[in-house]
Computed example of a mutant assay.
Amino acid sequence: MKKSVTLNDIARELKMTAATVSRALSDHPEISQKTKKIVQEAAQKLNYNSNRIASSLRSGKTNVIGVLIPTAENAFFGSVIHGITNLASKNGYSVLIHECDELYELEVKGIQTFIGARVDGIIVSLSRNTLNYEHFLEVKRRNIPLVFFDRVPDEIDIPSVVIDGYNGAFLATQHLIDQGYKRIAHISGPTYIKTFNDRYQGYLAALRANHIQTDAEIIYTGNISIDSGMEGTRHLLQLQNPPDAIFAAEDFTALGALKELKSSKIQVPQQFGVFGFCNDMFSEHTTPSLSTMDQQTVLMGQEAFKLLFDMVKNGISDKANSVRQVIEPKPVFRESTMRGGIFK
């Protein structure tokens, strides 16, 4: 039987230490790209196959993390994952991704899958239907590093990376007021999710700051979808005193609003303003283009990985669990609100 090639065989071939060869094959950041290439070519030439299972048993690490997202249909989560995988790869980690399709049961299954795969840590954004956090408490009991991003439960003490939705919503609503819109509606997401409640509260705060009375009649609870945006806009337009602008909780809802306004032959932005939240990939390509808040999604993913990586390397502590990183959103003003023309 042909003898299996080992790290020591590659090391002897290249006159390097086995430790250097191992780190090069693991894409360790301290090893130069030139050395990595030399080692990889030698490994291929010698027909070397690393034994990840044996390696993980020896070290107690798999160099794999799990990322659990509520949906893959929203480009927001794809962009966050890009930020996570980019840094993970640079630090020698592979990424397992599980989508739960906004279902609590699949979210629980995803966590169980990650635990079974012995991942070194888990990054999560909650399903919109999640009200029970026992599966995350189980992750904590097992001392597996856990980080949340975007949709975050306040009920458990876990490090997180979030956007300042309150301030973003305030700025969006203030912009609509500055553009001369008088009666600004809000189509929210599920407000039991903190992300969407923060945006709702920011909207209310901007109205108060401008001495505009809140009118519950023009606040519509949606479910973060194009259909929800269309239904909400249709409902608002049928009111005896309809609004002349909508601040939507996210861009798919805003897209639905634009579609319904177009079918109702209402001109945007001349007669009606629409402001979204996310800066999804399609938002600059709608007609008219959509004003929105950029959530800096790649940065969010990178910061989430940094928090997780620190816990993997240095252990879980009360200090680590208390970290809550807040990223400021950036307003992107486009045609859907710019009555006076686009800013140059």
Rank of each mutant, 00 (worst) to 15 (best):
M1R: 12
M1G: 15
K2H: 15
L7K: 07
I10F: 06
A18G: 14
V21R: 06
V21K: 06
Q33M: 11
K37T: 14
K37Y: 15
I38Y: 14
Q44W: 14
R52S: 15
T71V: 06
F77S: 02
V80I: 10
I81Y: 09
H82M: 07
N86I: 00
G92M: 03
G92L: 03
S94A: 09
V95W: 02
C100A: 04
D101C: 05
E105A: 02
E107M: 01
G110A: 04
Q112P: 03
R118D: 07
G121I: 13
I122A: 01
I123S: 05
V124K: 03
Y133G: 04
K140C: 04
G165P: 00
N167P: 01
F170Q: 11
F170Y: 14
T173L: 01
Q174E: 13
H175E: 08
P190V: 01
L204R: 01
A206G: 00
L207V: 01
A209T: 09
H211L: 11
I224G: 00
S225K: 04
G229D: 02
T233W: 06
Q238M: 10
P242E: 04
F252M: 08
A254T: 02
L255Q: 11
L255R: 09
A257N: 07
K262R: 13
G276L: 10
F282K: 06
S283T: 14
E284T: 11
L290R: 08
T292K: 15
T297W: 10
T297F: 07
L299G: 11
A304Q: 08
A304D: 08
F305P: 09
V312A: 11
I327W: 14
R334S: 13
